[in-house]
Simulated scan of single mutants.
Amino acid sequence: MDINSISIKQQEPHDLPAICRLIEEAFATVQESDHREQFLVKRLLSSPGFIPELSLTAWIGSELVGYILLTEIEILSKAGSIPTLSLASLAVRPDFQRQGIGAALIEEAHKHAAELNFETVLVSCNFN
């Protein structure tokens, strides 16, 4: 696969069922997963922190092969509130993993985030 054949675009509402299937496939064999990531994404898409420009899909031809979502959160500190972004979720179809699609999605999402004047993105992990 040629990384240049990937088309990254903003998620469209009709993409959601395919995104959910993609996320299920991507996390199906991940031992640390609770296999509910697609439900988190659905909740985040209807949350106050949802920013449509930061919900991106990766395509090769007409095949959805990857997805990334950044949502707005606030970090509260003694100095005040700091707007930032949280990465949840990043998923690549198993048969396309380790080919640069995830990295391309992260790079494109960071570019859009910078255009929206965000300076930080957090990645959280569940260590249960």
Rank of each mutant, 00 (worst) to 15 (best):
E119G: 12
I3T: 02
T120L: 14
E72A: 14
N126D: 12
I23M: 05
Q97F: 02
E115I: 05
F27N: 02
E32H: 11
K78Y: 08
K111P: 05
P13S: 05
M1Q: 10
T29V: 06
S5R: 15
G61D: 11
E25G: 03
D95C: 09
Q11M: 15
I19A: 02
I73A: 02
L54V: 07
I106F: 02
P13Q: 09
L69T: 12
C20D: 09
I3D: 00
T120E: 14
I3G: 00
A109R: 02
R93G: 00
P48C: 00
E25Q: 10
P83Q: 07
S5N: 15
S86G: 07
N117S: 15
N126R: 09
S124A: 11
A58F: 04
R21D: 11
S89M: 05
T120G: 08
N128A: 14
L70E: 01
Q38L: 09
H35R: 14
L45C: 11
E115A: 14
L122T: 04
D15E: 11
E108S: 06
L85A: 07
S55R: 10
T29G: 09
D2W: 01
G66C: 06
E72Q: 15
L76Q: 14
Q38K: 07
E24A: 13
A88P: 00
L105F: 11
L105N: 06
L22A: 05
F96A: 01
I75G: 03
F50C: 13
A18N: 12
S7D: 12
W59C: 13
N126F: 10
Q10R: 14
L76H: 14
I75T: 12
F127P: 01
S47C: 05
S47F: 02
R98Y: 05
G49L: 05
K78R: 13
A58W: 03
L87K: 09
K42C: 04
F39L: 15
A79Q: 12
Q99K: 14
P94N: 03
L105S: 08
Q31H: 10
R43L: 11
A28V: 04
S5Q: 13
G80V: 04
A58M: 06
I23R: 03
G61N: 15
T120F: 07
K42F: 02
K78E: 12
S55H: 06
T71G: 03
V123H: 06
Y67L: 07
E115H: 15
S5F: 01
Y67M: 01
E37W: 08
I3A: 12
E107F: 02
Q99R: 15
I60W: 00
A103D: 09
L69G: 07
H14C: 01
I82V: 13
A79R: 12
S81C: 13
E107H: 11
A26P: 04
L22C: 08
A58P: 06
L70Y: 15
R43E: 12
L90S: 05
R21V: 07
H110S: 10
A103H: 03
R36K: 15
L44R: 08
V92N: 05
A88Y: 08
N128E: 12
P52C: 08
A104S: 13
L90F: 01
N126S: 13
N4M: 08
L85C: 07
A28T: 01
S46K: 07
A114P: 01
F127C: 08
I60E: 13
L54M: 15
E24C: 09
L16A: 02
S47I: 03
I73T: 07
L69K: 04
G49S: 05
L44I: 11
D2S: 04
L40V: 14
I75C: 03
I68P: 06
A88W: 00
